[in-house]
Design a protein around this nucleic acid. Structure first.
Lengths: 161, 161
DNA sequence: TATATAATTTAGGCATACCTAAAAATTAAT
DNA sequence: ATTAATTTTTAGGTATGCCTAAATTATATA
């Protein structure tokens, strides 16, 4: 696996913190299958950089700074997952890929994807191209674009030019 | 930057190899702004794992295994870049994000994206939703879906049910 | 061909993200 | 309230991907 970033930990702490006051070394350790001793080091680092407040032997708690970052990333994560699921990708895989993508995409790419999801979600009917895509992924066969659709697009294009 | 993988190097070697017999430490070193001494180590590793053949002081050359991997990744890369550009993302940014995504996406996600690009490219006219998305990204304003389109999609959906 | 210059490799170092083992603190059970 | 069990921390270790400096090999020039 790639090296885990501060963002990864902050996000995880946020999730584990739900319904408890503080997050303890063992919570993270068992959740990531790493050694509690390693988690102590991570806590110290997160604390030093102001993402959490840490008291020896009593776990950590996200600071406002940490919470903001967590929320920012989780928003990205959810949008990306939604995006992938929209395209027909299995939700477990979407979850995973979103997890990777959330750290690497350029803000403007993120912005486009956010708007993409928004546009598709605003449609009351499943867009036609999406039906075609899903069918193609499922069967390996790409159905023909119905001439009505084609004509419409063509007309709209003419209007623009 | 994230830790560079074997894949990164193999891909780079492939590109640098164009028009020359062998790739030398300095080619990689200057291309990545890392120390030639580090590149020697990388060469030894690539050689040990069979991706290149390496002769001390005379650079490396991709093996068939290495070449296959390079081609596989470059194909992913190109598709991802194309995909992002289709969505209206600036080509320099698309290049960069593709570079990151190519290593992380699940094969089935990759497959869907490949087919997505294929479907859109097969259209002789720019699909309508894509026009709307681009307009939205550009202006922040989302145009209404024309009723003709809406009706068509609705009809097709009825046929399916 | 001898020598200067450039490219490459070796040897050893540093940072980091993890590890294990053992010490210290906390919590639970009698 | 002791003592036992659990959790957490400390101390020290490993692997890796980079580094610098110095040694070695290759190449270019006189």
């Amino acid at each position: 696996m790639r090296k885990r970033t501060i963002e990864d930990y902050v996000e995880l702490v946020y999730d584990l913190q739900k319904g408890k006051k503080r997050v303890h070394t063992n919570d993270i350790a068992s959740s990531l299958s790493i050694n509690p001793a390693s988690v102590t080091e991570i806590f110290q680092k997160l604390n030093a950089e102001g993402y959490v407040s840490y008291k020896k032997y009593s776990g950590i708690k996200l600071t406002d700074k940490g919470k903001n970052i967590a929320l920012r990333i989780k928003k990205k994560h959810n949008t990306l997952k939604e995006f992938l699921i929209l395209l027909g990708i299995d939700s477990k895989i979407a979850e995973n890929d979103a997890c990777e993508m959330e750290h690497i995409l350029h803000p403007s790419t993120m912005d486009t994807i956010i708007k993409f999801v928004e546009v598709i979600k605003k449609c009351e009917v499943t867009p036609f191209w999406l039906e075609r895509l899903k069918g193609y992924v499922r069967s390996g066969k790409l159905s023909k674009c119905p001439p009505e659709i084609y004509e419409l697009c063509q007309n709209f294009q003419k209007i623009k030019d």
